[in-house]
């Protein structure tokens, strides 16, 4: 049972290659918590912007009539991976974990697996 801060700390320390992480409410676009990032990656801006990514995908699935749900979204850049994991809480539909990874150092499969565990720890 973790709080937001410890969960995010866990995400950036336990996951190899993590450069920053945020917990985001994707309806309002607000970051409930951020860690890492720095001047090259403003996580508050990333949080707000990526809500549009999630919203567009949710909408597309609705238009396609797919009754499935999004587990995660991967965006591959030249030097980074951006991983968006939608939380399936009892009370909190509408939150996602956002993780930026250094492509050189990260193990994508491992990162996805660990992010899943962090979600469970957060108990949302």
């Amino acid at each position: 049972m973790a709080n937001t801060e410890t969960a995010l700390k866990e995400a950036t320390t336990a996951i190899e290659g993590a450069v920053g992480a945020a917990l985001v409410d994707y309806t309002s676009g607000m970051a409930l918590g951020t860690i890492g990032g720095g001047k090259d990656l403003d996580l508050n801006v990333a949080a707000a912007g990526n809500t549009d990514v999630v919203r567009a995908k949710v909408r597309t699935m609705e238009l396609l009539g797919m009754q499935d749900e999004i587990e995660d979204i991967l965006i591959t850049l030249g030097t980074q991976y951006h991983l968006i994991r939608l939380l399936k809480g009892r009370n909190h539909s509408g939150l996602f974990l956002y993780l930026a990874l250094d492509k050189q150092r990260a193990n994508l499969a491992m990162a996805r697996h660990q992010l899943k565990r962090i979600e469970a720890d957060l108990e949302v």
Partner: peptide, 15 residues
Amino acid sequence: LGCGELEICHLGALF
């Protein structure tokens, strides 16, 4: 309630 759960819900209500 879980600790993270309370915190997230409370922050949502606060903002």
